[in-house]
Design a protein around this nucleic acid. Structure first.
Lengths: 149, 149
DNA sequence: TATTGTTATACTCTATAACTATA
DNA sequence: TATAGTTATAGAGTATAACAATA
């Protein structure tokens, strides 16, 4: 990847491109989820659970919505056999939501149908993908400097 | 930016990180929009219009939703004085939606309140921002090879 | 004939408030 | 007292189908 002779980019331009990029990703995801008869929120819930089980309130936090919304979303996913509620062994108030094997299959199908994004990533070589990964991790995942070790 | 000695990343890992990054950006945006009493869809509409006027159907395409949805969304934004419908001079079926100065002000306020994302971008130096910009453009904006010049 | 925007409808998402069970 | 999850409610988002006006 050429590291010099690129026009300089200010933070506002980068914010604008992030807005465009994430709209493209989100649209791609929404259409792929719809092709499996899932709403965007249902698809996002499966995406989160793909990383492992989560309580109802943890799901709400990750999806940036009120906890009361999760009841209906998980109800519908459970009715379709894509997720399952399980009681927490350590806290009887908590319900852990886990992906079923069918749920795992469906979210993987959805990811595989995100052709716009997958084609875009195909335009990068391995080193570029590694660089993009490291930069996104710094921006969106890295802990602030005040985090304790 | 260190370009060597990073662990190699396969496309599936990158898709997963894109999913996490999108959720972080989207959550940041949703909370910022809510602080201005706007829904995520209303905020996204203002974001699109910040790039220039767009017809109702063009908005629907960009937001990946049916055209019939735009009527209500634009109605509510227009009622608050954030956008305006204007007849197209060239096609009497078309209505162009334009941002008012107040709408421009509000979407800029929302962008300025996206602290999680802005802080994340602050962790990058100028060269890293330039690299991220170029990579995102390649993945999400670049035209496929079949595009005509 | 096809497209643009709107309306009507049914379902889903969303935040708020109030509730029960548990910590 | 505080937290986890649910329910009830009202407003907003969503796709589908049907429509009038225009191309």
């Amino acid at each position: 990847m050429r590291m010099t002779a690129l026009p300089r980019v200010d933070p506002a331009q980068l914010m604008e491109l992030l807005s465009v990029s994430l709209a493209a990703y989100y649209g791609d995801f929404t259409l792929a989820a719809a092709s499996e008869s899932l709403t965007a929120s249902q698809g996002k819930t499966l995406s989160v659970l793909r990383r492992g089980p989560a309580s109802m309130s943890a799901l709400a936090t990750t999806l940036t919505c009120d906890a009361s919304n999760m009841t209906g979303i998980v109800d519908r996913l459970e009715k379709r056999g894509l997720v399952q509620r399980e009681p927490s062994p350590s806290d009887r108030r908590v319900k852990n939501v886990v992906l079923t094997s069918e749920g795992k299959r469906v979210i993987d199908v959805i990811r595989g149908k995100m052709h716009h994004t997958l084609d875009g990533l195909d335009r990068l070589d391995e080193q570029e993908r590694t660089t993009l990964y490291a930069l996104l991790e710094r921006v969106f995942v890295a802990q602030p400097a005040t985090a304790r070790p």
